[in-house]
Amino acid sequence: MAPAIILLHADDNVVVCCRTVMAGEAISADGVDIIAAEQVALGHKLARIDLPAGTKVIKYGAPIGSMTHPVKAGGWVHMHNMKSDYISAHLRDAAKG
């Protein structure tokens, strides 16, 4: 069976889910050992380590934004707790206006 997550670069502080992971699921792959804090879908990111607010999020070995709120290792990292360092994104809620 395929691994639950992939670590794309040794410097990364997030991992990517290769399938939906379940809340409380113990994940051990690519030298990463974390427990998923909640159910997270394929393609989404989990914190590899504790990430305080203000931390640069590193994926592909490169910064992809900064944490706006802290997250513990195994927590979901997405737009509710991180943001772009370049330019704002728009969500479906904005389109509903």
């Binding site: 990517v16 889910c17 879908a41 394929l42 393609g43 989404h44 990111k45 999020v57 994926k59 592909y60 490169a62 910064p63 992809i64 934004g65 990292v77 997405h78 737009m79 991180m82 943001k83 772009s84 360092d85 370049y86 330019i87 704002s88 994104a89 728009h90 969500l91 479906r92 389109a95």
Partner: peptide
């Protein structure tokens, strides 16, 4: 920046992408 948005659609976020530069990479 002048347009107010990056090249980032709602579906990108629903699929797990969180920022323009993550999509860019």
């Amino acid at each position: 920046r002048a347009m107010g948005y990056g090249s980032f659609a709602p579906g990108n976020a629903e699929g797990g992408l969180s920022s323009q530069e993550e999509k860019s990479a």
